[in-house]
Nucleic acid binder design. Structure first.
Lengths: 345, 345
DNA sequence: GTGAAAGCGCTAACAT
DNA sequence: ATGTTAGCGCTTTCAC
């Protein structure tokens, strides 16, 4: 009936319970300091009024924010990142934090993200992008927030990264094809300059070299991790006079487009060529043929990064958390499915 | 050299520029009130110190928050929602807002989201879930934030929804199959109780009825919008004695799993059966065969919802924005591809 | 065990 | 055109 139009504040609760605002505050944040009776009276008033502390005021007072900004590159492979985000979200939520997703997209956005980081709302920062928001020499890290990198390493001092062991995973791709007997390999790369691409590329070249194959056993074509690049890569492959029998794609999405394109051109997978993807997204098991790929521990990458940040926020030092390592590395797993087989003869 | 460890505040800028804090504040929010010379002196100090206003303090003072909470159901079809979110994100960013993604997942999460909404951080609320966070009678709407629903209608008074015309889209699915000559239809539903499922279901039944077909022309099987449900639905279909020639799936993901499962059992699509999906995700054009489906204007749904919220936040009234309608309806588009054809005889 | 009051950084009346 | 100051809602000394 006598409904007040504004949200209840601490003073309303104090009045209703017949105590001071300080007592209400203590009932909420340090209940053990109150007589049981007082505490119960306050809590009853809190419930009756549906009071929730205004955390903006709390933060201004110097309290800790519960908001963590997660920076995601805009053109970011949704089936991959959504699972990483899920891992982050679940882990943060368990510790009482809330995630803000900030997509990068052009310089304006970079500026806005930097301002958000400096705005006083945030407790910490998680980045999944190898390129940090940066505007005229000002980096988002200047906000001084505790920060952790996931899935890509911006290689900035003091920013501990949680990464897939991309080099090892790339070797898994190569060695799988080599073990099947392939000796001539086509590599549809990721976007130039991309962190993961750079490391995997090195891994692939190294694995080819270690197998004693000549450098021209590897034919490369630039891709971009999306369908269109997969199709374009396949057309480049089809145009080759001497087609490699093994194909490594930068990710599953481009692998699926690659396969669709070569099949449409009359080739058969894995009879005419074997294709390996990367990521292990759900669709890779529902395409035709099912895709051999590297499963990334997506949820776990997100969870581990979030955990690291939470520990940092709790005041632990990087040294004790990283145990002397400069990075946390997780392993990919080869999922051998129907898109790879021994070369036909 | 003489680097202060804390972030600069308005007082630091004032001191550096030799003016009062009020002048700094005005230089930032009402520059026209200042003499050009003063303004320039202040701005120089702002730049020199790398000052960004503390928006927590601003908000506490009564200023407007720039944070919008977007509520997303956890089991939320990433390829679909990521585009809706993109539309939201781009539109909000243009108006200077930042999006917070809040996933729903169990009651704990509901409570946390309600607390976030009540915390004073937020400017407004966007929900893509038909079920609003709710805990023991307390709804997130009690926080009193301006709010808009997208893609699903929680059917709460005062919550304007931006929706796909699901009933019309469902008719599109049915009529496409009817026009091809199918007279016996299998419907793999969405999750029971889901808003979109409810409306589409009605549309499908109505379209069948209007075509003069008997009710048993439609065979239903409960699905869940994910791969596993698509596979299970296909197995149920395969077990039927008299198999319908037309199949409508609740979404693309389940349609793709459905097709994969029936093909593995030796059936051919579209020779033995035609399959229609729903959503128009990218993968639907890269599966085998390519999937006939309903394209939802995903980006536009998000953008329209965000726009509506922005206008609400700018003080416009629901009445003037909705032009007398109680909802904003957008239309789906049939994409006829290779998974549908006339029944074989 | 509880209350009074200062102060977090900012904006907007109100002075000058 | 610019300065002074109250106060947003909360937590936390410091008194009692």
């Amino acid at each position: 009936m006598n409904q007040i139009r504004r949200l209840p504040r601490i003073g309303d609760v104090a009045e209703a319970a017949g105590v001071s605002v300080a007592t209400v505050s203590r009932a909420l944040s340090a209940p053990e300091k109150l007589r049981k009776e007082t505490r119960e009276r306050v809590m009853a008033a809190v419930t009756a009024l549906g009071y929730t502390p205004n955390s903006v005021a709390r933060q201004l007072r110097g309290g800790n924010s519960q908001l963590v900004l997660v920076i995601v590159p805009r053109r970011s492979n949704p089936p991959f990142f959504s699972e990483v985000l899920h891992g982050i979200d679940v882990t943060l939520a368990e510790a009482g934090y809330v995630l803000i997703t900030g997509y990068m997209e052009g310089v304006d956005r970079d500026l806005r993200l930097i301002e958000l980081a400096t705005s006083g709302h945030l407790a910490g920062l998680l980045t999944t992008s190898g390129q940090l928001p940066q505007v005229s020499g000002r980096s988002i890290l200047d906000a001084g927030l505790p920060a952790v990198a996931i899935c890509a390493d911006p290689q900035v001092p003091g920013l501990p990264p949680v990464l897939l062991d991309d080099a090892a995973a790339a070797r898994l791709q190569v060695n799988h094809l080599l073990e099947l007997g392939h000796r001539h390999i086509f590599y549809l790369t990721g976007p130039t300059g991309n962190y993961n691409e750079t490391v995997r590329h090195r891994g692939i070249v190294a694995a080819i070299g270690e197998a004693g194959l000549p450098p021209d056993a590897l034919v490369e074509h630039p891709g971009n991790y999306v369908f269109s690049g997969g199709a374009a890569g396949a057309n480049a492959y089809l145009a080759l006079e001497d087609r490699p029998t093994g194909v490594i794609c930068g990710n599953d999405e481009s692998a699926i487009a690659f396969i669709k394109t070569v099949r449409r051109a009359g080739l058969s997978v894995p009879r005419d060529l074997s294709v390996v993807g990367f990521d292990g997204i759900e669709f890779a098991d529902y395409c035709e043929p099912t895709l051999t790929t590297i499963a990334q521990p997506r949820f776990e990458l997100g969870a581990a990064g979030a955990k690291l940040l939470i520990d940092l926020l709790a005041g632990k030092t990087r040294e004790e958390l990283m145990a002397g390592e400069d990075r946390i590395l997780m392993q990919g797993r080869l999922l051998a499915r129907d898109s790879t087989a021994a070369p036909s003869r």
